[in-house]
């Protein structure tokens, strides 16, 4: 579904990533680790087309990223659910509208999707907060809301950047469980995280590959993970 072939990315005159090859197949689960500033977020952005590689080729659903215009790119994004580290929302809209935003922008009838939305909000434990505005939410609620928004279109791929970065252990376990459930539904999942305990916990429940960015290159993590 998403293929990176010998991809490199330069920024400000220096190489940030070099010769990265990665394939996200249906039902696969990948963790991406590495020290801060190693390029994890950059690699995720390359995977969902927010950045263009300076070398190599990125394919989204068999389409060359460079050949996609902005409209085609938007359609691709609907097949990729993204959870940002900082969980941005439209602050003037209530939580339910924010979660349903992918439905709104794709022109789907909200009335027909109301039941799905309700179930999804229940699944992430936010039913009681449907009318709250995003600034009123806690860090954990924002993370769960971002995850709900990312999956409401039933995307083929879920990409999450430090989804447990701002939450306590119990909440990070709940988020991990949600991601594993999605993976069991056949979704490809790519999670950037530096939380080794979380990764170990995940590996006990799902067959996940752990990748590490080291010295601008992508490699399989050691046996300790």
């Amino acid at each position: 579904m998403i293929n990176l072939d010998s991809v490199g990315y330069s920024y400000g005159g220096g190489d940030l990533l070099t010769d990265i090859s990665l394939r996200l197949a249906p039902g696969s689960f990948h963790f991406l680790t590495g020290p801060s500033g190693s390029g994890k977020t950059t690699l995720l952005k390359l995977c969902y087309g927010a950045l263009m590689p300076t070398r190599g080729q990125v394919s989204l659903f068999d389409a060359d990223l460079r050949k996609l215009d902005r409209d085609q790119m938007a359609l691709m994004r609907r097949r990729i659910g993204v959870v940002h580290q900082d969980c941005r929302f439209l602050d003037h809209l209530p939580l339910s509208d924010n979660i349903a935003l992918p439905l709104t922008v794709s022109g789907r009838d909200r009335a027909l999707e109301a039941e799905n939305l309700s179930e999804l909000m229940q699944w992430v434990g936010l039913s009681a907060r449907a009318d709250a505005l995003p600034p009123e939410l806690s860090g954990g609620e924002r993370q769960r809301a971002a995850l709900a928004r990312a999956v409401i279109m039933s995307p083929d791929v879920i990409i999450a950047d430090e989804p447990t970065g701002n939450v306590d252990w119990e909440m990070s376990q709940r988020l991990l469980t949600l991601l594993i459930e999605l993976n069991r539904m056949g979704k490809a999942v790519l999670v950037a995280s530096h939380d080794l305990a979380l990764i170990r916990a995940a590996k006990s429940q799902v067959q996940a590959r752990v990748l590490r960015i080291s010295n601008r290159h992508l490699q399989l993590a050691g046996a300790d993970l």
Binding site: A50, R70, D71, A74, L75, R77, R78, V82, H84, R88, F89, L90, L101, P102, V105, S106, R149, M153
Partner: peptide, 16 residues
């Protein structure tokens, strides 16, 4: 700008 970034993230076309 942030609104636009969020809309693009969730798959909104420029026309929308």
């Amino acid at each position: 700008r942030q609104v636009i970034e969020v809309l693009r993230l969730v798959g909104a076309r420029d026309r929308y």
